[in-house]
Design a protein around this nucleic acid. Structure first.
Lengths: 247, 247
DNA sequence: ATAGATTGCGTACGGCATACGCGAATGGAG
DNA sequence: CTCCATTCGCGTATGCCGTACGCAATCTAT
């Protein structure tokens, strides 16, 4: 899962992102489009996660040979870039109200995106080169904090802060949900409890055990994971409010 | 990079984490210890990243056969758990002052940990089963927000919020630094600029281009990435302050 | 000396990304 | 109509990966 390196030609990637590689007219007519490849990859990642996304599986789903994909995409890393840009474009960004209301809507829109495509949690944020989806999203979100007295750099920082919170909080949310869904949950603790008792010094880690137990119990319910998300969101917005009010 | 699944025996993992697998006395004496395996894995990950960490490389570094590792570690996923717990334990947690000062120290300590071990950024946070390192860290950090009028669940939420911020901000910080270090940076933009001009509608994405340029220019300098980290940190602490003050 | 437990690890399997090169399809030039 | 440059589809092959399996070596207790 080399989600990092981008050794390929960035210009080529840029052109793919901006859909600027039309068929020249010459040569054999393509049977596959870039969009189809990206769409298939997204479907697989949505269903089975990034770890189970392989070039072979994408090709299989499209009824094509594995190496045919490489006529449309330079490699897997660039495919990731294209996937991120695509899903960034698919959200409708219409934010209304004061800046705080708008930022709240931004947060919820991003959370929804992460929930629809959990694999984004490991891919986000993606560095340049960026495409129309990512830039359009950035542009729309910036409007929420435009004209409230912040400098350009501050606008970027505020947005980054908010999106980072949403990313992390959504990751936790999904993790809690997954943990709750994996078998009876009660049974899991029942199995581990005696071993934990044997190993864990409850006195030395008194505070951790107490708070950890409280948090685990609370987050077991859907209502409370929801509450945790809202709680953090309002802390972040409060922090931004202090900045904005001072202008 | 199956950083997620934990299909193995959780009880076994727990015992490994808590160092509760002494040599029985019978049978061939082990030539390798669990600690050596974990330490070697951390060294490799520190140097070349998680993507270049393979069981073969760990074994090679230890002068052992690849499959010998599996006598000490159930699999790669559990090795990740052990690595996380180990590095969580290696930080000294002595926080002093008021809750806000302490949380600031917590943030800096975590940032330092992420900078020392960038691979943590993709592994963090790790769900149960957890070992003495992770729990000890959690316990120490909770003390920073103990006795200031928060409920147990709120204490957990506040800490989670802060650590998520630090994770994201440090990831950005490292990414900016890496981007700046990769070749002349000026040249990179110079190569891409004409293509961007051709593809990107500067009118449609006016705001994004303006703010993005400002942010990129600013973060080019070390001083300003540093400033960005502090900026976000203070926003988060301000947000928490509002909560604490209300109690 | 032997039995039983434990470790080290060579071999092998299935999966992965992808480099390379060939054959098939296509449109334009002569 | 013929050729040729161009582009696409993709079979084959290479070198990684995690790890299942089983045997040989080594140890203690008897």
């Amino acid at each position: 899962m080399a989600a990092s390196a981008e050794p390929g030609d960035p210009v080529r990637t840029l052109e793919l992102l901006w859909d600027a590689r039309p068929h020249s007219g010459l040569g054999r007519r393509p049977e596959l489009t870039l969009d189809q490849v990206v769409a298939a990859a997204i479907e697989i990642a949505d269903a089975d996660g990034l770890d189970n996304l392989s070039m072979r599986r994408v090709a299989e789903r499209l009824g094509a040979g594995t190496m045919s994909l490489y006529r449309h995409v330079p490699g897997k890393s660039e495919l990731f870039d294209l996937m991120v840009d695509r899903v960034s474009a698919e959200v409708s960004y219409r934010y209304e109200g004061g800046w705080r209301d708008q930022l709240e809507q931004v947060a919820r829109a991003n959370r929804a995106m992460f929930e629809r495509h959990p694999w984004l949690l490991t891919l986000f944020p993606r560095r340049p080169p960026q495409g129309p989806g990512v830039i359009g999203k950035y542009d729309a979100e910036l409007r929420a904090v435009e004209g409230i007295g912040l400098t350009d750099v501050e606008m970027d920082s505020v947005l980054t802060l908010l999106l980072e919170y949403v990313r992390g909080a959504t990751a936790n949310l999904i993790e809690w949900r997954r943990l709750g869904a994996t078998q009876s949950d009660e049974q899991w603790w029942a199995t581990l409890a005696p071993h934990l008792d044997r190993l864990l010094d409850r006195d030395r880690y008194r505070l951790a055990v107490r708070v950890g137990t409280a948090a685990t119990t609370a987050y077991r319910g859907v209502r409370d994971t929801e509450h945790a998300f809202e709680f953090g969101l309002h802390r972040v917005l409060d922090g931004i409010e202090g900045l904005v009010a001072g202008r």
